[in-house]
């Protein structure tokens, strides 16, 4: 790796740092963990940068962030191995950051945030990749490392669960 590699990396990959950080925030639900994971993922991305073929840099970086987040969760949670990923009962986000609290004070925003946080990690992941990152099914499939059919079924189940959590009434909505 040379200084030229660093410059190319900063130009091609680092513009997606906000997206990387957003994904990590949702997957880990803690700003400090998210910062550590994004730093780790960025350095890993840099080490693998030779193997990056010049495709979608955003999806490529997000895939690395996603994998680092999973590793982080396993490493830092004593109970991680006893709770399966999809059925894991996740504790609500508990970062007491006042700025965040103020930012999500509007009730609708807080309601949505709580509903997302209450989703199992695999559902939360596809929702964030789709609704926040606006990735295509194919890109989500690349990032999450699952077939497109699995992406679609997770997305469908995640939305129906969110509808219940948010109390979106079919009558009311129609």
């Amino acid at each position: 790796m040379t200084q030229g590699d660093v410059e190319r990396f900063e130009r091609v990959v680092l513009p997606y740092l906000d997206d990387a950080y957003t994904l990590a925030r949702y997957l880990l639900r803690d700003e400090h963990d998210a910062q550590d994971v994004v730093q780790e993922a960025s350095l890993r991305a840099f080490r693998y940068f030779d193997g990056y073929s010049g495709g979608d840099a955003k999806a490529w970086l997000l895939a690395i962030v996603r994998n680092c987040s999973l590793t982080w969760r396993h490493r830092h949670r004593a109970d991680a191995h006893t709770v399966s990923f999809i059925d894991g009962v996740d504790s609500p986000a508990d970062d007491g950051n006042e700025a965040d609290t103020a930012a999500i004070e509007s009730s609708e925003r807080a309601r949505v945030q709580r509903a997302i946080d209450a989703l199992p990690a695999e559902f939360r992941e596809v929702i964030v990749l789709r609704e926040v990152q606006e990735l295509s099914y194919k890109e989500i499939s690349d990032v999450a490392g699952v077939p497109i059919g699995t992406v679609m079924s997770r997305l469908a189940r995640a939305r129906r669960r969110l509808a219940v959590l948010l109390g979106v009434d079919a009558q009311e909505a129609s």
Binding site: L14, L17, D18, A20, Y21, T22, R25, A34, Q35, V38, Q39, A103, I104, E108, R109, R111, V112, Q113, I116, I127, V128, E131, V132, R159, R160, L162, A163, L166, V168, D169, A170, E172, A173, S174
Partner: peptide, 24 residues
């Protein structure tokens, strides 16, 4: 209608975070 209302709520209210300067 239920799905599209859910999608609207989520996409309009989900936060997009900016990576902190310290992290960069």
């Amino acid at each position: 209608a239920m799905l599209s209302e859910t999608q609207r709520l989520v996409s309009e209210n989900l936060m997009r975070y900016a990576a902190p300067d310290v992290l960069k």
